[in-house]
């Protein structure tokens, strides 16, 4: 992660960050972060709340100035060549920024117009976007009265209306239903196939599995940067045991207690859907003991097996949880 010198080759990278730091007063939101993203790559930018993801994206877009370090998009310096950056990128911000008092269609037209689309192109794009966003029949609804999920879909459409070469998506699927989420990702992959570079943040770890490479940021520091499969090998401190139990909540309490009194050296016990994921150094060794423990407390164990870690397991393992009272 050492900073490479600025060379002609770096120049061609769609996204390049060198020793990027941002301080607000004496609070460091982004701390000496360096990475780059290749052309046509889908890059996942992950981390807990307040880690500095959005701040990084804002610096890449030139919306805020870095305290030190550089950010380049398509070879343009984000801090000084902001206009050029904006002309070539699409940005879907975390907070809803469309005009609530315009209709869905007017918003698309507005963003298309801002990016200088001709009226023919615009007409075609409006139809396309309305279709991909599934907003047929809602074209003339005021954006403010669209439901949360639809707003997200429209926002995504507006971000890519001008066929940008690089797209920044800040939690695009927040509040979107499971089916549309999958459609979002199909769209993202479609764009990537066409050579668009995508940097995306999300708190859905199942989605993050789809990224070709992910960066983990926590407390402003880049803590991991690799492909998902590599991260699962390098970042996992233990093995994952998946437990299906008749009463998962009760099973959780029992296992937590066992972790506290040291009977079983869990690194982590957590509910994962209706199952429990327990992380420990040697899954095989404690499998029986866990089963016996749960049975002894009248909890039926329907399944217990070692599974490959999910990215969510990796996330929790590599990102220390903030202090909590519960």
């Amino acid at each position: 992660m050492s900073a490479e010198p600025f060379t002609a080759r770096n120049h061609e990278l769609p996204i390049l960050i060198q020793n990027l730091t941002k301080r607000f007063g004496d609070f460091t939101a982004v701390d000496n972060v360096s990475f780059n993203v290749q052309s046509g790559e889908v890059f996942g930018w992950l981390g807990p709340n307040g880690a500095g993801k959005t701040t990084t994206i804002r610096m890449l877009l030139g919306l805020i100035k870095p305290t030190s370090g550089n950010a380049f998009v398509l070879g343009f310096d984000s801090a000084t060549q902001t206009k050029l950056v904006h002309a070539n990128v699409g940005y879907m911000s975390q907070q809803f920024t469309l005009y609530s008092d315009l209709t869905a269609m007017q918003n698309i037209r507005f963003y298309g117009g801002v990016h200088g689309l001709s009226s023919d192109e615009l007409r075609q794009r409006i139809a396309e976007i309305i279709r991909t966003a599934g907003l047929e029949g809602r074209e003339n609804t005021l954006t403010g009265s669209l439901s949360g999920g639809w707003k997200q879909r429209l926002a995504l459409g507006c971000a890519i209306v001008h066929h940008p070469k690089v797209v920044f998506l800040d939690e695009p699927t927040a509040g979107v239903d499971p089916i549309s989420r999958r459609q979002f990702w199909e769209l993202i992959y479609q764009m990537a196939k066409e050579g668009v570079t995508v940097l995306v943040t999300t708190h859905y770890m199942d989605e993050a599995e789809l990224c070709q490479r992910v960066g983990f940021i926590t407390g402003g520091k880049l803590v991991a940067l690799d492909s998902v499969s590599q991260l699962k090998q390098t970042q996992m401190r233990g093995q994952v045991l998946e437990i299906g139990a008749s009463d998962p909540e009760k099973a959780m309490r029992i296992l937590k207690a066992a972790q506290l009194n040291g009977r079983i050296p869990f690194d982590e016990v957590a509910l994962y859907g209706a199952q429990i994921h327990a992380v420990m150094p040697d899954a095989q060794k404690y499998k029986e003991a866990i089963q016996r423990l749960l049975m002894g407390e009248d909890v039926q164990v329907s399944s217990i097996e070692r599974v490959a870690p999910t990215l969510e397991d990796v996330f929790i393992s590599s990102v220390k949880a903030p202090a909590a009272i519960v």
Binding site: R181, F315, I316, V319, A321
Partner: peptide, 30 residues
């Protein structure tokens, strides 16, 4: 927009409130 770790903590908190105070929870969620 809440991260996975905090999401778990949030649910633990709700679980505790339900167990201790009999809280009724109505939640819309994706």
């Amino acid at each position: 927009g809440v991260d996975p770790v905090s999401r778990r903590e949030f649910w633990n908190l709700l679980g505790n409130l339900r167990a201790e105070k009999g809280l009724t929870i109505f939640i819309c969620t994706p």
